[in-house]
């Protein structure tokens, strides 16, 4: 299977795979970086985004409405979750936060299962991205190409929010020094709530954008969550650029390994993560501070 066209195709495919992982991972990482909370329900929120979007699609038949509905619903869920549950856990040990989000993840999955059953739900790609495009060295589903663009726009939007807005300044200051932000008289809780909402929205957005590629079932979040962990660990916990870089690396590993021995592509991902940890424990772009 090792031929130049195939290598080019797989390398490109790795980029597509990595783009979605990067988006999901950046949601996880900005929440952790700002709030210090590792949200184990992040995978479940990816799934909820997919379902919310599919429901909207079934009523409207519009891809754009579906994407908006999926993202906004999960953002609302994130805001609610922060306000009702997570807020009470800031002064508790980090393990408690992990446990409660782990439990909430199960609750979300089973609630969705109860509502929609276990058969997969799907949604076609929008008409402007249906079909197949020829790239010369390969043919590729048009929608997957579109996803690269869509995710790039989403990541850019996140970047603008994180690096070019007042909220972003507070958030990044918070990543570096939570106490300092506190002492500036900023309503930290409100910032936290918004960040949690944005982080969740990233997962929800990725969830619905992914539906035309892979129909969803209530369980999809679990494997996504584990892959997201790997991405975040490789890139550096709490680092937005790290999440993007980690996502792209993970995508390439998954894709390129499949040329040599497809069965090992998942395991290769974990091995690379282990290697990164041994050589550079804080992750590729991780800050020294948080760990």
């Amino acid at each position: 299977m090792l031929s130049l066209p195939n290598f080019a195709a797989q390398a490109f495919n790795g980029l597509v795979l990595g783009a979605l992982l990067a988006l999901i991972a950046s949601g996880l990482t900005i929440i952790y970086g700002t709030l210090g909370v590792l949200n184990l329900a992040h995978g479940a929120m990816f799934m909820v985004g997919g379902y919310a979007g599919v429901v909207a699609y079934q009523y409207t038949g519009s891809y754009l409405v579906a994407v908006a509905a999926g993202s906004l619903f999960v953002m609302a869920l994130g805001l609610l979750m922060e306000r009702v549950v997570i807020r009470h856990f800031y002064d508790r040990p980090p393990e408690d936060q992990i446990l409660v989000t782990f439990g909430l993840g199960i609750v979300y999955v089973e609630l969705v299962r109860l509502t929609f059953g276990s058969l997969s739900q799907s949604m076609p790609p929008p008409s402007w991205a249906a079909g197949i495009t020829s790239l010369g060295f390969m043919i590729y589903p048009t929608y997957r190409l579109a996803v690269v663009g869509i995710v790039a726009v989403a990541l850019l939007a996140l970047y603008l929010v994180l690096y070019r807005s007042r909220l972003g300044m507070i958030v990044r200051a918070g990543i570096e020094d939570a106490v300092m932000v506190d002492s500036l008289g900023i309503d930290v809780y409100r910032v936290f709530m918004i960040v949690f909402g944005i982080g969740a929205m990233a997962a929800g957005f990725a969830g619905i954008v992914n539906v035309p590629i892979a129909p969803i079932t209530p369980d999809v979040g679990e494997s996504i969550l584990v892959e997201t962990f790997v991405v975040v660990v490789i890139g550096g916990v709490g680092s937005f650029p790290g999440a993007v870089l980690g996502g792209l690396i993970a995508g390439e590993i998954l894709s390129l390994t499949s040329m040599v021995d497809p069965a090992y592509s998942q395991v290769m991902l974990f091995l690379v993560m282990t290697f990164v940890l041994v050589v550079r424990p804080r992750g590729l772009l991780g800050e020294q501070g948080r760990a």
Binding site: L38, F270, A291
Partner: peptide, 18 residues
């Protein structure tokens, strides 16, 4: 154990997958 806390938790998940 090269890392602590949340990092540690995430690494253990990944290794168990292997």
């Amino acid at each position: 154990l090269r890392r602590t806390g949340i990092y540690f938790a995430m690494i253990t998940v990944a290794i168990a997958e292997v």
